[in-house]
């Protein structure tokens, strides 16, 4: 993303191109901005015709998210929005952590050990992520219901761990294969054990890659709707499902409240778009496309 400026293709842009880029960037983002603005408008302003560009901002929606009641005294979330934030955080963080541990071991095995058929194995993992999610969700729903685990934390965390594994393995393998192998082999000759090699030599060099992988996996999980919609219950509902309920609620569609909840939901994602731009492509394509 930061190309070589010596390259004739990547000479710095002139002011006209820069201005055009800035304009297009803002225009591309306007839909998000307009939605988020509804979060600080009163209900009347948000749904005004013609639309209001200037309005008196209000934090009512954010307040009602956390108190659970609208200014008119209607209850919006039975358990309070913070409960869903907790669920989303807890489920995403736990499953990403589990997936990272399993994936680090597997990626190390694939990148460093001479195992026959790794190529096949890697493509098989990749294919698993492309299979239509509904194909696995239907049986998972049946299986977990039969086991009496429907709607519990272990259920959804296990499912998301598997959901993140292919991605994490591919990413970590791609980062690992960029590390020089020589230091590890030297350590091996000196009698260092494999776990110590992984811990002392690989991990310190892999810090950036680990963070990028974990964060992008977190965003995938945080954003996911379908698995949560089917496999979570009363006690394990995540943010997107709660937000959709706001819209379908008997209170009537409260766009302001939705937008305010959405703002909280989006904040971490925007940070990723800023700080992890260089890793995004690798993340989105699972490292099948270099850089």
């Amino acid at each position: 993303m930061t190309p070589d400026s010596d390259h004739p293709m990547f000479r710095p842009a002139g002011w006209r191109r820069t201005a055009a880029c800035a304009c297009v960037g803002v225009i591309y983002f306007i839909p998000v901005l307009w939605m988020l603005l509804a979060g600080i408008k009163t209900r009347q302003d948000a749904m005004a015709t013609p639309p209001k560009l200037f309005f008196a901002p209000t934090l009512d929606h954010f307040r009602s998210l956390f108190t659970g009641f609208t200014p008119e005294g209607q209850q919006v979330f039975p358990a309070g929005f913070i409960f869903y934030v907790f669920n989303s955080l807890f489920i995403s963080a736990t499953s990403v952590l589990l997936a990272m541990i399993l994936a680090l071991l597997a990626a190390y095995g694939v990148a460093r050990m001479s195992i026959r058929g790794t190529h096949w194995l890697m493509f098989y993992t990749l294919a698993m992520r492309m299979i239509p999610p509904l194909t696995t969700i239907i049986p998972l729903y049946v299986i977990f219901s039969k086991l009496g685990m429907g709607g519990t934390y272990p259920e959804i965390i296990l499912v998301y761990t598997a959901f993140n594994l292919p991605f994490a393995i591919w990413m970590l393998r791609s980062f690992l294969s960029e590390l020089p192998r020589a230091a590890e082999e030297a350590a091996w000759l000196d009698g260092t054990s494999r776990p110590m090699i992984l811990w002392r030599i690989c991990l310190p060099q892999l810090r950036g890659g680990l963070a990028a992988t974990a964060i992008i996996a977190f965003v995938f999980t945080w954003n996911d709707f379908l698995f949560s919609q089917i496999l979570t219950g009363q006690d394990t509902r995540t943010i997107p499902i709660a937000l959709l309920r706001v819209l379908g609620a008997d209170v009537g569609t409260d766009w302001g409240l939705f937008a305010a909840g959405g703002a909280i939901y989006l904040a971490p994602v925007l940070l990723v778009a800023f700080f992890l731009q260089n890793q995004l492509l690798r993340g989105a394509t699972f490292g099948t496309v270099p850089r």
Partner: peptide, 23 residues
Amino acid sequence: RPFPGRRLVLMLVLAPMLLSTVF
């Protein structure tokens, strides 16, 4: 082509692909 503030502008353009599809 590179230009000052490219990271910020690209954030605006790249944000949609990171947003939750439900949202």
